[in-house]
Design a protein around this nucleic acid. Sequence first.
DNA 1: AATGAATGAGATTTCATTCAT
DNA 2: CATGAATGAAATCTCATTCAT
Lengths: 210, 210, 210, 210
Amino acid sequence: MNGEGAGRPESRRQRRIQRRKREILAAAARVFAEQGYANTTIREIAYQADLAEGTLYNYFGSKREILLGIVNDTDALMETVLLGGEGLEDREAFVQVVERGLDISEEQIPFLRTLFSEAWVDDEILQDFVDSQLERIYRRLTTYITDRIEAGVFRDVDPALAAQLILGMFGSLILPALRGVASLPAPRGRRALAEQLVDLLLKGIQAPEN
Amino acid sequence: MNGEGAGRPESRRQRRIQRRKREILAAAARVFAEQGYANTTIREIAYQADLAEGTLYNYFGSKREILLGIVNDTDALMETVLLGGEGLEDREAFVQVVERGLDISEEQIPFLRTLFSEAWVDDEILQDFVDSQLERIYRRLTTYITDRIEAGVFRDVDPALAAQLILGMFGSLILPALRGVASLPAPRGRRALAEQLVDLLLKGIQAPEN
Amino acid sequence: MNGEGAGRPESRRQRRIQRRKREILAAAARVFAEQGYANTTIREIAYQADLAEGTLYNYFGSKREILLGIVNDTDALMETVLLGGEGLEDREAFVQVVERGLDISEEQIPFLRTLFSEAWVDDEILQDFVDSQLERIYRRLTTYITDRIEAGVFRDVDPALAAQLILGMFGSLILPALRGVASLPAPRGRRALAEQLVDLLLKGIQAPEN
Amino acid sequence: MNGEGAGRPESRRQRRIQRRKREILAAAARVFAEQGYANTTIREIAYQADLAEGTLYNYFGSKREILLGIVNDTDALMETVLLGGEGLEDREAFVQVVERGLDISEEQIPFLRTLFSEAWVDDEILQDFVDSQLERIYRRLTTYITDRIEAGVFRDVDPALAAQLILGMFGSLILPALRGVASLPAPRGRRALAEQLVDLLLKGIQAPEN
DNA sequence: AATGAATGAGATTTCATTCAT
DNA sequence: CATGAATGAAATCTCATTCAT
């Protein structure tokens, strides 16, 4: 019974709702990224999502909840940056993680752009995201560096500071794309970019004989 | 006679106006930095500057003009980052410029915080500031690196990319202070911080025997 | 079936919007006529139209747009003054046009009152209305007089000046009603009024033997 | 004693104050005429009168008092329209009064323009001026016409209506100048204009044989 | 669920008036 | 008397949110 398809109908309904939510978040992220959260009206989001204004409120309780939805989505994605690279030789592991970071960043530009601009002034977002997600990446990197120093592979630098500087280097790569003034290189170029970053990081800028 | 105390009265009036403008900008920068431009009301700025709302409009034509006033002020200050360091040995020059950058950044935290949060979504600010001031710093650094490579002091890296990565490293140092989650080290610590950055930059993270 | 009651729903919506717009314009014209445009607040118009302030902005983009809406409406009505009277004997034609002018003016008193008071200082209104609508009436009258002179029915007067003076005479009739200090005579009296105006116009005030 | 010039010093002071008041009224009338009362700022009036804003308040207690000052001044002038013409032959008397009306109107255009635009919506002005000054002119004209009818010089028309229509004719002559879309003819042309008005008024527009 | 008209609190901005200098 | 900076009430307009259909 229950006509075609069956399955728990509840689940189908849930899936439809989730899909609709994602569509709304994607539309909202696009507009937020372009105009900023405060300058964006619900009407504009509704228009971009091809829905009536009131309909949005069936999926999100407020404009702010849409923003937090974006933050969460981005959160989830950041997780994946850290996956992979395990068991590889150091240099290659580094390069792959950087490259993957570039890939993900590009896909998520509107989300990241929204995220960063609002994180400056919104304490809840700042804590939910920056002080949880970035902190995790930062800690993981610190631990890794500490290990490598102990293994004698890295020089005896301050691991926390080194982690911070490395994240800064990575940030400088995606910043222009985030700001919308330049786009990231094509996938092939990204590999080269990652290699150059890692090269500089490992060997420094000074000529060896110095 | 006619020592200080006389002078053209026009000039005294002008000075009073300029002083009042600076007071307003300082108050506004504080509030913008905390709450963001869009969330800040004229009423709040006026309250912080200890003036009536209408009085602000005797000095700035609109809320936005106040924001642009902050951008301009910051502009002027950024100039000074690049001064000094000429003629010093490379390592020391680098260290001093980084240190000075930290000093100036600290003084200007509310202004910088305002600036960066709004530059994301405000094209005029983005172009007036980021694409003029930062670009200058970036170009100067690129030129410097190119020289050093030609002189055989630096390895043969991509100078533009290296400059970008270095700016990213510097950015990572002031970011926590800008975000308000940590403050910069005391002046003595800043010297050490600058040295560590320069050390990592010059020699890399890899152990020498590698 | 599908008699009245169906129709494209778009069209029904459009009609509802148009009706609402007219309601707002009527309320606004009443208030403008009493207090003048500048002295009238949006709040007052909204109150008179029995709507919230914000609702007005769903129909008109600004207070000024409401004013222009009134001007346009009046424009459209003025057209009809000139209709009719064709083919009648001169005296009767004149009388009928004057009478119709009185009728229309009475219906439109709040609109006309608004219009005239603002036309003094608002160039756009002055040109959109006075210099297009009144000009048309004026030209038509001039042409008519010229014809009549050539036909030997009217004396050899300056047709343009005569037209101007006639419009002034008509204006003096509706002015008291427009100012709100007196109302126009009842319809029957209007015919008599029109006849007296035309009589004076045709034969002058001087006794014949003079 | 009392130094040079003597005279009651009070009186000299009074004269200076009166002169200053007139200067302010003239400046205000110019600006009001151009932009309307509500759109004009005290700052603009002060600028045109070459005074500081606060200084105006030494002469007039409020912006509105300046407006009423203009109304009064105009009032005083209107008086003079009616002077003269006594004892002249009818036609010439009419012509001279009309001509003088044109002369005075031209001199006073900014004042009249201000007056008429505000009289629409300001009951105090409407009553103080229109319903006192115009009423006087209107009554005088009515009386005159009644006399003339009794003397058999004028036809048996409704004197009140005739007076109204005549004022309307005169109004139509100065209206374009008042509106700022045309200027009055040069003095010589004014005589001709007045003669044409009077001619039409006395003999009508119809050809005699009709 | 979907719609979009209605709502009204709240923001920016203007400007007549005051008052210390 | 003259000045013009300071004041703050009041006006216009925006827009997140609600709710009847």
